[in-house]
Design a protein around this nucleic acid. Structure first.
Lengths: 340, 340
DNA sequence: CTTCTTTATGGAACCGATTTCACATAAAAG
DNA sequence: CTTTTATGTGAAATCGGTTCCATAAAGAAG
């Protein structure tokens, strides 16, 4: 049988209230009793049952974290960032992934929100539907949405500046490499990220007086094979550069180009978006846009804790946009050494 | 104020016991009352408070998962595997990483074990010390240790067949590529994985009548720069092939060789271990040993659930060894196309 | 030497469910 | 027409803590 607070109380010859006070440092307690209790606690390896503590304090010290997947190096950084901040603050991370059945998992995190099992939740669900958002908005616990622009609600959001990231990349291809026919491979239609990146791309063209050509926009799906498949269309539209809306597709593009004996980086410029772990190790090293995933995780965790710690104070929803960074490697045609 | 079971009971004009029965399908209950209660539940979006359920049922439907890190694609697969099985069984995953301060985090998961917050725990802690293991052995909840060979205890373990993996790789380098001077870069001294891989390497040499030469064994640390640093020693010992105990180091080796204008795969064979996500995308594509990380995760989760569901039945500790698979790409000198 | 604080402690209520037990009623069996 | 047995329900105990409240003793102030 596990040791309970009553056991300790009995052994110390005091009431459970006193044991509780000794353990939590709340209220008055005499030095001797405290000492004795703490000794007994150590002796019997007594650890208060979290289930009971949670119920009586009405909080769980755990934060939910919902991610689309953990395959690939992309989301790992988010988890790491979240965990870092939460564990520092003695919070736990309840992890949930969406990979298999998005619909089902959406239900799952919705019900998690009102289950009382967590004190706050961080959701990264790139293709969330309005109906789900509506339910989430009713949350009694703090919510931070990542990567989706949810407005007019009581949920905080953290976004990446996709627009300017794509703008800088396109600008780079135009200004430095003098490309005028730049193909853009999009993500899935519903993807907010993809849409913003396309906007940035278009805006750069406009700013540099290059006419936007629909034929140069190919629909992709954020997967490697999606990138591969798009190459055909890009080439037939006479593209001299291919800007994929994420690194995975850029990788597909590179592989497909090589299969066709076209030299990526030399004959055709290739660029990606995300700066995942391996993007520097592929050949040619990928020119891409860095997303601060680790910072996103840290910031999300901080925002949640902040909301929890100022439960009473009413704050309007926050919307933070983190800036991206252009990472120039070789796939665009630049010549940098391996070290960056 | 959140709706409680008492609220529902009052509204339905029944006792809370009846509501509980309606919700859980336990015991007898009349059709009409059940229907009415369920309607009210839906209407008010009532979800039972997990904190209370956990306490009264004395279980949390949560399994702890401790990983060294989530950076890189290596552990992501483990999480995915675990999550897959747990979520199917309506369990939650409490995630914990060790990255920053191993010592402190070790304490953290030890205390997590006896906190009553989780029903079981999966621990992947490659450099765990005996003292910690001893504490873990006292656990009241099921424990599965990954990657460490803990014996004579009540914890289950899942291991990867490092020995045979390294053996096959070394054999490949000897039989197919006729190498006789194969350098081996180890991981940190305490790493069980590294030790086993070194054993496999040695055994292969022995089997093929090649004398083992200490000079060909270089101490590494599982990091990329560790791999880089080891190259000097390998070369000066006259190695014609370099077998790194993990992919990260192999990557370091490849980069360092290129820096020295030595062609990896042609002039010197390079091999890794792990088969991480990017190992096929680097140049040359890395010949390595695949570890079934996803299966490990799934199996660990299954073992934990199995223990939980057969609490009463005493089973001796299990020790499962999963086999690895040799992945031949180009860094060893083989010529395969890009598609594998 | 009272009176007012401050300190120390235990008893009991409470958190929100589940579950045991007792009791009542209805249906089945003898 | 009794006696079982099956069905339905509520009161109360329970899970293991925290916290409010009452009370007592000790110390400070007047």
């Amino acid at each position: 049988m596990k040791t309970t607070i009553d056991d300790i109380a009995k052994m110390a010859g005091v009431s459970k209230s006193t044991v509780s006070r000794a353990l939590n440092g709340t209220g008055y307690i005499s030095k001797e009793k405290k000492k004795k209790i703490l000794e007994l606690v150590k002796l019997h390896n007594y650890v208060p049952d979290s289930k009971a503590v949670n119920l009586s304090k009405n909080r769980t010290m755990t934060i939910g974290l919902v991610l689309p997947s953990v395959e690939g190096p992309f989301y790992g950084e988010v988890i790491q960032g979240v965990e870092e901040v939460l564990s520092e603050n003695r919070y736990f991370t309840l992890f949930m992934t969406e990979s298999n059945a998005p619909e089902k998992n959406r239900e799952r995190y919705i019900s998690l929100i009102s289950s009382g099992r967590i004190d706050g939740i961080i959701i990264f669900d790139p293709q969330v539907d309005d109906q789900t958002v509506e339910k989430v908005m009713k949350s009694e616990i703090p919510v931070v949405y990542l990567g989706e622009d949810i407005h007019g609600t009581n949920v905080d959001t953290i976004l990446v500046d996709n627009f300017n990231g794509a703008y800088s990349m396109t600008e780079h291809l135009i200004k430095v490499h003098k490309h005028e026919r730049i193909a853009f491979i999009t993500g899935p239609a519903q993807s907010f990220d993809s849409v913003e990146r396309l906007r940035g791309y278009k805006y750069a063209l406009e700013r540099y007086g290059i006419k936007f050509d629909t034929n140069l926009v190919c629909r992709g799906d954020f997967t490697k094979s999606g990138g591969k498949d798009a190459v055909e269309k890009c080439l037939s539209s006479g593209a001299t550069a291919i800007f994929a809306a994420n690194d995975e597709m850029a990788l597909g593009v590179i592989e497909e180009l090589e299969r066709r004996r076209i030299n990526p980086g030399k004959e055709i410029a290739v660029a990606g978006f995300d700066d995942v772990f391996w993007s520097r190790y592929i050949r040619p090293p990928l020119t891409t846009v860095h997303q601060p995933m680790h910072s996103i995780g840290k910031m999300a965790a901080k925002m949640i804790l902040d909301r929890i710690n100022s439960r009473d104070i009413v704050k309007s929803p926050m919307r933070i946009v983190l800036s991206t960074r252009l990472i120039v490697r070789n796939s665009c045609g630049c010549k940098t050494d391996l070290t960056n």
